[in-house]
């Protein structure tokens, strides 16, 4: 396996409030040193509560926001500080699918115009008929009918809109896709359609996907590996089955046990987390999770625990090796 995207100690701090000249400004540490590598052809999911920095991670990897520190390499090339012009060739190869299928489509454009936009930007040479054909092919590929081409987004259902968003992202044949909660705004009966579509397209087009989500059932189904984020840091990374069956970080244990199981006969004991995720402006010292952790020791407040290998392909950022954690599935 080779890495398609490598993320190295990525940091993104947003200034909040503060004076006119930026003195005494506070920082939101949305990303606080994230290192991940995304292998070619895999689906890597990022899970975590809101405020964990998972959306910021997706946007920063695509250079839609500029990182404060750290490095992003795409196919071995450092794209961390490329100018917008220099980034353009990369834009064809890395794309984004949004959570809200309504907000991400321009309400003034028809489906055809929306899906053709990437061609207008990047494939200047091809003729109008050629472009129309490619758009029609793409719409068929994502399961839309030809007559949808001249409809406006508001005339489509949520699921159809999301298909349009996927068509736009894939028409330039990218190798890397960031899918930011692509099903969570959809009706339940539509979610499975879109999950299947993403998996099918991934196989057909050889995509690598960074899948950002909070629905653990969907994540468990779709991903090869999962990274768990908490307050701007990755606390655990492992293959999907491993993470569900033998989590090594207390936060993973709590997060996964909070997911409701759609079976009324199963009553499992739940690790209930106390309180909310702390503010990323002023995160706790040491391990950021220690304030809500039932296994926390005094040492946890002093050192930021590094991500270290705890098994094959399994990384965890917890200093306690001596605790038995509850698996979310047997």
């Amino acid at each position: 396996m080779t890495a398609l995207v490598e993320i190295d100690s990525l940091q993104k701090h947003f200034p909040v409030g503060g004076g006119l000249f930026g003195r005494g400004k506070k920082q939101v540490r949305a990303l606080d040193g994230v290192s991940l590598s995304i292998e070619k052809g895999e689906i890597l999911s990022v899970v975590g509560e809101s405020g964990s920095g998972k959306t910021t991670l997706g946007r920063t990897v695509l250079r839609l926001t500029d990182p404060t520190a750290g490095a992003i390499r795409f196919e071995g090339q450092d794209i961390t500080s490329l100018s917008r012009r220099a980034l353009r060739p990369f834009r064809q190869r890395m794309q984004l699918v949004f959570q809200d299928p309504f907000a991400s489509l321009n309400p003034r454009q028809t489906v055809e115009q929306i899906v053709a936009t990437p061609l207008a930007i990047h494939a200047g040479g091809s003729s109008a008929t050629e472009k129309r054909e490619r758009v029609a092919d793409m719409l068929r590929l994502v399961g839309l009918q030809p007559h949808h081409a001249d409809r406006y987004p508001h005339e489509l259902s949520g699921g159809q809109r999301q298909r349009v968003g996927i068509a736009r992202a894939l028409i330039l044949n990218p190798s890397f896709l960031v899918a930011d909660e692509p099903v969570s705004a959809l009706d339940v009966s539509i979610q499975a359609q879109v999950v299947n579509l993403l998996l099918e397209l991934k196989e057909k087009l050889g995509l690598t996907i960074l899948f950002i989500a909070h629905d653990l059932a969907v994540v468990g189904h779709i991903s090869d590996r999962i990274a768990v984020m908490y307050l701007g840091r990755v606390v655990e990374v492992a293959e999907t089955g491993t993470l569900f069956r033998s989590p090594r970080h207390p936060y993973t244990e709590a997060l996964f046990s909070a997911a409701p199981i759609p079976d009324p006969t199963v009553r499992r004991s739940r690790v209930l987390l106390q309180g909310d995720i702390p503010s990323p402006i002023d995160p706790p010292s040491g391990c950021a999770f220690r304030t809500r952790c039932r296994h926390a020791l005094p040492e946890c407040a002093t050192v930021v625990p590094p991500l270290r290998q705890v098994g094959p392909g399994h990384l965890s950022a917890c200093i306690r090796d001596d605790i038995a954690l509850q698996a979310s599935i047997a």
């Binding site: 339940v188 009966s189 979610q191 059932a217 969907v218 189904h221 779709i222 999907t240 759609p262």
Partner: peptide, 12 residues
């Protein structure tokens, strides 16, 4: 609806 929800016990 019930069938379309991914089963947690098959995760991975």
């Amino acid at each position: 609806l019930l069938r379309s929800v991914p089963r947690l016990d098959l995760a991975g």
